[in-house]
Nucleic acid binder design. Structure first.
Lengths: 255, 255
DNA sequence: CACTTCAGTTTACGTCGTTAGCGTTGGGCG
DNA sequence: CGCCCAACGCTAACGACGTAAACTGAAGTG
């Protein structure tokens, strides 16, 4: 009767531990530049590949788990870097987070591709659910929300949105910490989607290398995209300050 | 002395033929939803896998060749669809081409990923060269050029560009039919890069499925990105007409 | 005709994901 | 306490993959 919740028997704890180790080892492998394989993960854990099937249904599932974990770890990095600015300065935090996001994508293109360019079939509801939990998505929506709370930039009313979009922002499937956003203010999520699309565009372009290397090195394309979004987020009168932060952060992340 | 150029011996013709067949068969395989493999391609050609090494140095090289070919074929599709509008109406053509590009990306996500999300390492100059020849890139820059010729939208002067970017637009590495653009007007390419980044962003987001499926189905996010770019391209006073074309084309491509 | 070039073969190696079946062991229950 | 079974990990094996090497035969060239 002591613990109705968390009926953690010893077995279950053990299981969860190796489960975590699998994902952790997989991430470590990727971080060393090796590529992900069941055999490699198992090998490093002192097991054989088929044993992993006690924990993971398929290679693809492992990939998804790892993607989720990488996303979480990466987000923690950006978040920490952004925390250099106080939480009542969400604009600065957003700028820093964007730069760190880009830097992460550029320095680990393989991992970036795994997390953000990993194709997700329409049907596959399992993977979709993981995507919905995406830590980075939550973090960015949160930042946007904080910016709005402070700067009250305009967003479309629900009535002005396409019916399908209205439905999508009222009942979000995409990663978005939206519970605390009043339904009448859900138009914010439309702004989020649009901004995310723009950010995702440059960063993916740069990370995959489908771009002039000099343009990537200069960071100008990315810079332009970020600056372009200041006005729509009600940050026009902070332009100078935020630009300085942006350039500073770009310089920091340029090794 | 008849043909100094094209010293096509019989051998060379034969060789080129099977070379083409390889790429063609590979594309066919992909079109049927199968995934690319040397063995599959060879098998369908009535050969064994190692034989392909007479024509292709590695699997990755085959992928690159196929990517180039797919890009060419896809571009031809968009181009044909866009040709519904006369060539003195490049704005309409661009709108149609963008919609068709998106539609292609959504209906063949696997191929799209191959062409546009296929990571290209910094060092790998071979692949970079192929990328530079990208047919779609040429087509879009050309369209943008035509629009500028007609509508004379503003673009940054060379002096206003970051030095690195200036160099990049004067001596482009990215796919861009830029020879006919006077150096002083190369600021146009900056507009091109920025627009491409935005288009690439939505389309990749949608094609990889990292997005609410309802948003994809509605096409609203894509629509918003295209409409947003009308003004910067000097097409503001054509907004109504182009919006109609955009929506019409979206309806057409919605199966 | 002899000689070379080269397209294609067979065989083989090492990798991968995945399946099937076999020991072993340790936790939960009678 | 002792039994049983479920969970775990193993080995062996299958079929795919990219790729390397050596060999065969035919086409092209002097």
């Amino acid at each position: 009767m002591a613990h109705l919740r968390a009926p953690v028997t010893r077995r279950e704890r053990q299981r969860e531990a190796t489960y975590d180790e699998i994902v952790q080892v997989a991430c470590a492998l990727l971080d060393e530049g090796a590529d992900l394989s069941l055999r490699a993960v198992a090998g490093r854990m002192g097991m054989t590949a088929p044993a992993l099937y006690r924990y993971v249904a398929s290679y693809q599932q492992l990939v998804d788990l790892v993607a989720f974990e990488l996303d979480k770890a990466a987000t923690a990095e950006w978040e920490q870097a952004a925390a250099r600015f106080p939480d009542d300065d969400p604009a600065a935090r957003l700028v820093v987070a964007c730069v760190r996001f880009r830097h992460w994508a550029l320095s680990r293109p393989h991992q970036f591709a795994l997390v953000f360019a990993n194709p997700i079939a329409e049907a596959d509801s399992e993977r979709r659910e993981l995507l919905t939990l995406s830590t980075s998505g939550h973090y960015f929506t949160d930042l946007l929300w904080n910016i709005w709370e402070k700067h009250r930039f305009p967003y479309p009313r629900l009535d002005d949105l396409d019916p399908v979009i209205r439905e999508a922002v009222l009942e979000p499937l995409i990663p978005a910490k939206a519970e605390h956003i009043a339904p009448s203010e859900r138009g914010l999520l439309w702004i989020y989607m649009r901004a995310w699309s723009a950010l995702y565009g440059v960063v993916t372009l740069e990370s995959t290398g489908h771009c002039d290397p000099r343009v990537i090195a200069s960071g100008q394309l990315f810079r332009a995209v970020v600056l372009e979004w200041l006005a729509p987020l009600g940050l026009e009168d902070e332009r100078a300050r935020l630009t300085a932060i942006l350039d500073d952060e770009l310089a920091r992340t340029r090794d």
